[in-house]
Design a protein around this nucleic acid. Structure first.
Lengths: 145, 145
DNA sequence: CAAAAATAAGACTAAATTTTCTTATTTGCA
DNA sequence: TGCAAATAAGAAAATTTAGTCTTATTTTTG
């Protein structure tokens, strides 16, 4: 089971982080990326297509084609990728699944989860891929092979 | 899509919260509970069976049978229900899905998510059902009919 | 121009989760 | 004792998510 994001989203985040470790516009084939993040090539390719249509990633067809980060790493935040793939329902819905959870009819953890949820949103919004670069490079390099 | 818990877990939490709003050992049939929390009866019944085998809930067969909170509401915490249904992987796995995420090989949000994850765990552990009773009763009563 | 290698797109399959159904067993009560 | 109503248990169906396959198109290179 995934933690809070879907598998698609996790892999999308990993792929974009991978791309952000290299100079902007550096092309990588879906195969290269999939091997690096240890995921099925076709699945990665499909996820990157989604990110392409949302504008975060660019693609180039043909013999020497591939995917690349289209937006400057200083302008992309993790939340942008999450938003493009899973959407933001995570930050709207009641964590206990109650309907109509609000200040007037709060669930038992409405306030406390609300706070944590906002902090999570902030965490995913605060830093850009550029700011995460060093730690990202270190992590990417530790992924064996 | 659910927020961080599975549907089973959400409904299990709702059902237990419902039971905790009444004096301990008060019996409710799966049908009554399912109508209250607006979920399929058989599904609720199955979830409560899980909670029965984990000891949080008790069950009584036969004509006037049903389910009841077996442990005192002052001794049950939300995390106990989560643990019984979804397990605690949520509090162990990397939120970005990276393997081997650790202090030595942290992912880009290892520290910040680690903190939020611990606070989430604390939130689900701190208060007992008894302490949540007032707000629970209010929420349950707002769920129409 | 033809071959090779890549993305794009969509159909298809597989797996996991959710939900329903069926049957057995238990229990209270007339 | 027999019926009705409930849980127990497990099979089956439906839905969602994950992953694969196929075909088309693009682009570079020989």
């Amino acid at each position: 089971m995934t933690v809070i994001f879907s598998k698609k989203c996790e892999l999308g985040l990993q792929a974009v982080l991978y791309l952000s470790a290299f100079p902007k516009n550096t092309l990588f084939s879906a195969l290269e990326i999939s091997e690096k993040i240890n995921a099925p090539k076709e699945f990665v390719s499909k996820i990157l297509q989604t990110l392409t249509s949302s504008g975060i990633v660019g693609s180039k067809k043909g013999n020497s084609g591939g995917f690349y980060l289209k937006i400057d790493p200083g302008s992309v935040r993790l939340i942008d990728v999450v938003s493009a793939i899973d959407g933001l329902d995570l930050f709207r819905n009641c964590v206990l699944g109650f309907p109509g959870c609000s200040v007037d009819e709060p669930c038992p953890v409405h306030e406390s989860w609300g706070k944590l949820r906002n902090e999570t949103y902030t965490m995913l919004s605060n830093q850009t891929l550029a700011e995460l670069r060093d730690i990202t490079v270190n992590k990417i390099n530790s992924l064996k092979k």
